[in-house]
Amino acid sequence: MEAPAGSGKPVDLLLEAFRQGKPDAFDAIMRAHQDRVYAFCARMLSDREEALDASQEVFLSAWRNLAAFRGESALSTWLLRIAANRCLNRIRQRKSTASREGPWPDADSDGDGPEFQPASPEGSRPDRVAENREMGAILSGALGRIDPDSRWLVLLSDVEGFSYEELAEMAEVPVGTVKSRLHRARMALRRMLAPAV
């Protein structure tokens, strides 16, 4: 729901409606962004309930701070940034579930991941849909096994389409650092899925 305004700067109409105190504006914001935020949390946390809790925290935090949101970035970017922070905090607090999260394979380790079929141009065919779903599950499983500090970068870059510059700003590191982290994470994923790819 982001439309160009006269100045060329995106204007989020839902955000404007929320600021004007229009009823149901926040519901509309949630409806517009909840799938994206929840999917990110679910892929980051690999746990439905935790993803639900994290998504709730994201939107509650947004509700508290939307009035002060200056609109320097898109609302979706802002929400996903909150989501990344929330998920990383939760992962760091998982002391009792360390076995599920690690150890994270590095780029030099050999992974023995589940089977993976690369996507093909025929992936949109009905007979390929089930295969794509399976591929998604396999990839999601592999994503859950890489370093969380690289995982959110992979999710925002390769799944959500954020630019390296946006990620560098979010991570507060140089663009080169983002690129190298992303490359190592992708290569780790490739190794995990090597039997299939």
Partner: peptide
């Protein structure tokens, strides 16, 4: 294979938020 992994990430199937998310956020708000 790296290109295949990246393509697979781009084609991850969408995930819908469970309906209770909206209800829980409304309640918290």
């Amino acid at each position: 294979s790296l290109a295949a992994v990246r393509e697979g990430l781009r084609r991850l199937p969408p995930v819908a938020a469970p309906p209770e998310l909206m209800a829980r956020v409304r309640e918290a708000v």
